[in-house]
């Protein structure tokens, strides 16, 4: 079996597995609309009496949050860290040690399949409320086309970074019995420094500059800012893409390092 066929099979199996939980995904996506309503009310009230906050009108800020929420469903490594941890703890990874299967590639295939199902299902409630949502949103004009071209690889790299961070957290199971607290702490850091709580450009400039050198910036904020016109300078976008690629490589190297070191500590028992 060729390498591509092997992981394609994993991908297809992953889609079937994810579809079993389709109602859960649909419910989660519907619940996320509540978050959107909250965002609209909060920022609507904050904008009352002023046309701009941080140089952006209300419509631009609302668009930022809508796009971010949709991207979260397509990109966020929601459960992968936990699943990897369980596979290590329960000894399920033992099977990969004796087979010609690369565990990173296997999990990455599953990540893409789960995100595809979650992402597509999340679009259903969004499409349902589009007639209401549409007039409140705004997207950048035609001259923004070059930045959309940067956004395409940025989205792929963002997915890779999201997954690799989750993978690295999963690897911690080789050293720690319980990693859930690490994951939730990391989620909180991601939520702030990834721009999920507020657009990062609303922070003081020095803090914004600092955050742009961290990987969290490239998980969600960077692609969302490119798509919604919060980053308009092409040179800034290209520099961001280069830093993002650097982080993707660094995190991949860290993932490999943790896997190799972790396996040295791992003991496969039972028959």
């Amino acid at each position: 079996m060729s390498v591509v066929a092997k992981y394609r099979q994993v991908f297809l199996t992953g889609i079937q597995t994810s579809l079993v939980y389709r109602w859960n995904f649909a419910i989660r996506a519907t619940f996320s609309l509540l978050h959107l309503v909250y965002i609209f009310i909060l920022w609507g009230a904050a904008y009352a009496g002023q046309s701009e906050i941080g140089g952006f009108p209300l419509a631009a800020t609302l668009t930022y949050f809508v796009v971010l929420l949709i991207l979260q469903f397509f990109l966020s490594a929601a459960n992968d860290d936990y699943e990897i941890s369980e596979e290590i703890r329960n000894g399920l990874i033992n099977q990969f040690l004796t087979k010609p299967v690369n565990y990173f590639a296997y999990r990455l295939s599953l990540y893409f399949s789960a995100r595809l199902v979650t992402g597509v299902l999340s679009l259903v409630p969004f499409l349902c409320i589009l007639p209401f949502l549409g007039p409140k949103l705004t997207l950048p004009a035609g001259e923004h086309l070059a930045l959309y071209a940067v956004a395409a690889p940025a989205l792929l790299l963002s997915a890779f970074i999201q997954f690799t961070i989750a993978y690295c957290f999963g690897m911690l199971t080789f050293w720690f019995l319980e990693i859930q607290s690490f994951i939730i702490l990391s989620l909180a850091v991601e939520a702030v420094l990834g721009g999920q709580i507020f657009p990062l450009d609303l922070m003081p400039p020095w803090l914004y500059q600092l955050s742009s050198w961290l990987p969290y910036y490239y998980q969600m904020y960077f692609p969302t800012a490119l798509l919604t016109g919060r980053i308009t300078d092409l040179s800034v976008a290209l520099q961001g893409l280069a830093i993002q690629a650097g982080w993707a490589l660094a995190l991949f190297a860290l993932a490999r390092f943790l896997w190799t070191r972790g396996l040295r500590r791992h003991t496969a028992v039972g028959g």
Binding site: N24, I27, F31, L34, H35
Partner: peptide, 21 residues
């Protein structure tokens, strides 16, 4: 449902409103 996966998100979705005037 088949599982509880993700449904606790509903709680967080609803209680966010308690931070609004």
């Amino acid at each position: 449902l088949q599982s509880a996966k993700g449904i606790e998100g509903g709680y967080f979705g609803l209680t966010e409103f308690s931070r609004l005037p």
